[in-house]
């Protein structure tokens, strides 16, 4: 494919002294606060983007810690109460022989959240610092982070369904643990972090100022 690092033919709206709308693509002269086509707020670049990204990032990181320590599920069966954490739930599934399902939960609850923290930090740092990955690769990474984030919610839904199904009047009884709340918050905060990122910054970073 073509080398994206040296693409002199591409002119951005900003370099042309115009503003492009990130919602509908409409190009307009600077001055208006809102897009004339769709009414979205216009910004040549979201100047506060990185600050918002880092704020949501650290909020997500802080609530991610208790999500892994405290129990996700509390199962009471015949007078015995067992707590299981996120990782414990995955191990239980492996013991039951459900390797496929264990893999789904492992990816959704451990690989995706951890990978997302790393990817968001990498993308945000790459705006100010020189990195190896090309603009195009980083853009693909950004799209993956945006697409995949919501799927981490699977385990929270699993806990809700189990708790609804296995009620008091049965031999076993399942209650949601406090980790379900902090994990759900962590997923929401990292989604906000990824959404705050202005992908146009990726393409600006290595260019200098094309005046």
């Amino acid at each position: 494919m073509e080398n994206t690092r040296t693409a002199p033919s591409v002119l951005t709206a900003r370099a042309a002294g115009l503003i492009g709308c990130t919602q509908c693509g409409r190009v307009q002269t600077p001055g208006a606060a809102r897009c004339i086509r769709c009414g979205s707020v216009l910004q040549s670049r979201d100047e506060a983007s990185l600050q918002k990204v880092w704020a949501w990032f650290f909020a997500g990181l802080v609530v991610y810690v208790p999500a892994n320590i405290y129990p996700m599920l509390r199962t009471s069966s015949l007078g015995k109460t067992t707590d299981s954490t996120i990782l414990g739930g995955v191990i239980d599934l492996i013991h039951h022989g459900s390797i496929g399902i264990a893999l789904i939960v492992f990816f959704a609850s451990i690989v995706i959240p951890v990978g997302k923290f790393i990817a968001i930090a990498y993308l945000a740092l790459s705006i100010r610092h020189r990195v190896k990955l090309s603009d195009h690769r980083r853009h693909i990474l950004y799209e993956i982070v945006e697409f995949v984030g919501r799927w981490s919610m699977i385990d929270v839904f699993v806990v809700a369904i189990l708790a609804a199904l296995v009620q008091l009047d049965f031999a076993a009884h399942i209650n949601p643990g406090i980790a379900a709340v902090s994990f759900a918050l962590s997923v929401a905060f990292t989604m906000m972090s990824a959404q705050s990122f202005d992908p146009r910054l990726i393409w600006d970073a290595n260019k200098g100022n094309p005046a």
């Binding site: 002119l11 709206a13 990130t22 409409r26």
Partner: peptide, 9 residues
Amino acid sequence: IACPQCDAL
């Protein structure tokens, strides 16, 4: 039209 993702015209 400006690309919503990278601002290319």
